[in-house]
């Protein structure tokens, strides 16, 4: 599971969706790998406005990366700073959680990630 993906996910439990505590989900015991994926600069620049930056900062810190700046880079900054673009590409698109869990900050439910695939199927008592 990519770090970018985590930015669009919340708890699958219905009652958690309206809670601010359910986003972002918190990685636990995460094992990371890096894919070698060709960069698509236009996609990256355009996807950034869709990213919840505050949540991304939380996720990034929780995964043990250096703290991200408080504000997201502007389009101009990204287009003039090749390294910044590469760093974002690596964080959002190339970093994968291969094993571990995602924990809801509201209900505490843990979703397993195995072989890179997160499983959001709920036990019957949570549906």
């Amino acid at each position: 599971m990519k770090v970018l993906t985590l930015n669009f996910l919340t708890c699958a439990v219905k009652d958690c969706k309206s809670s601010n505590n359910s986003f972002p989900l918190h990685p636990k015991d995460a094992e990371l790998v890096y894919d070698d994926l060709e960069i698509n600069p236009q996609l990256l620049v355009n996807v950034l406005p869709r990213v919840d930056w505050v949540a991304l900062r939380t996720t990034s810190t929780e995964l043990g990366f250096p703290e991200l700046p408080e504000q997201p880079p502007t389009v101009e900054e990204l287009e003039s700073d090749e390294k910044m673009l590469q760093d974002l590409h690596k964080l959002l698109m190339e970093t994968q959680i291969m094993e571990g869990k995602l924990v809801c900050g509201n209900c505490g439910h843990e979703y397993a990630i195995r072989e890179g695939i997160a499983n959001f199927l709920l036990p019957s008592h949570l549906v």
């Binding site: 990519k2 669009f8 996910l9 699958a12 219905k14 060709e38 869709r50 979703y111 959001f120 199927l121």
Partner: peptide
């Protein structure tokens, strides 16, 4: 064609884990 920007996960269509109004 080469690289695909995508990800996959297991979820039930009646209990989706996607944040409200977050995708295009």
């Amino acid at each position: 064609a080469a690289a695909t920007a995508s990800d996959v996960l297991v979820a039930d269509g009646l209990s989706l884990p996607f944040r409200d109004r977050s995708v295009d």
